[in-house]
Nucleic acid binder design. Sequence first.
DNA 1: GCGCGTACTTACCTTGAGGTAACAAATGAA
DNA 2: TTCATTTGTTACCTCAAGGTAAGTACGCGC
Lengths: 134, 134
Amino acid sequence: MKKTTKTKWEEATALCDGLSEDQDTLTREIVTGLADKWTLWVMSVLAEAGEPLRFSRVMEQVEGISQKSLTKTLRQLERDGLVTRKMFAEVPPRVEYAITPIAIEMLDHVEPLWTWVAKSVGRFQEARTQFDQR
Amino acid sequence: MKKTTKTKWEEATALCDGLSEDQDTLTREIVTGLADKWTLWVMSVLAEAGEPLRFSRVMEQVEGISQKSLTKTLRQLERDGLVTRKMFAEVPPRVEYAITPIAIEMLDHVEPLWTWVAKSVGRFQEARTQFDQR
DNA sequence: GCGCGTACTTACCTTGAGGTAACAAATGAA
DNA sequence: TTCATTTGTTACCTCAAGGTAAGTACGCGC
């Protein structure tokens, strides 16, 4: 045994060991879900709005997303309790989506990682160009 | 204007605004790369080993990965400067992979998010079951 | 009666991830 | 000579993400 203290990462994986296999799978699903093409963008739009937005408003602000993908993304977020969906019995239909507190909490934990990567992007760029000229 | 202070998330996206489009894309690629099936697992194995590991050792410890996927995952990590590859001119061939300092740094930034999700998994579970019975 | 506006839904296609299985290369050992 | 060992690579398959385009539902206004 060379190492005496656990790395932070080992603590994290150790923490995961305390979970059931289902919970471990769900943890992975939540984290990988964050990397889906539109998830973070949709969440951040709703978070920054600070108020419920209807489908078409979200669609406008998430530039380039298709109806199909927006529907799917919002459904997934709703299923995980990250957004709420409120349907109004009107014609034409009105549906409002809002960010939830747990989603805000999650974004607050995503942000440091994202910021670090953005701040470090130069080093990654350099590594890639060096690797690619070979 | 209802809000007076920026949320953490707005700061993060604001920070991204300072990047070129290329850099923004690269930032996204690095983050989404983390969500690839084997990436974090491979990185954590190398990080916890604390010493260079040869291909077959990594393969043993990353349970279930195929040769093809391990090769691909390691290439990507190498390209981004997250692992180093050292080839020895021996027969049979020996190749050693090692984690880099920047990768350790990145893992240290992934860990709080992962830990938070794992800690919050109960709430997600509850949200899903509630959503699914409908 | 007919189109308009809104929020989906469905059919169909392309693309990439990732799996399995077989093959490549190179040399010391039997 | 033949084989085992190790690190890939390649061919082929399946599955899911995500895009486009069209259809659905439904009351209101003209």
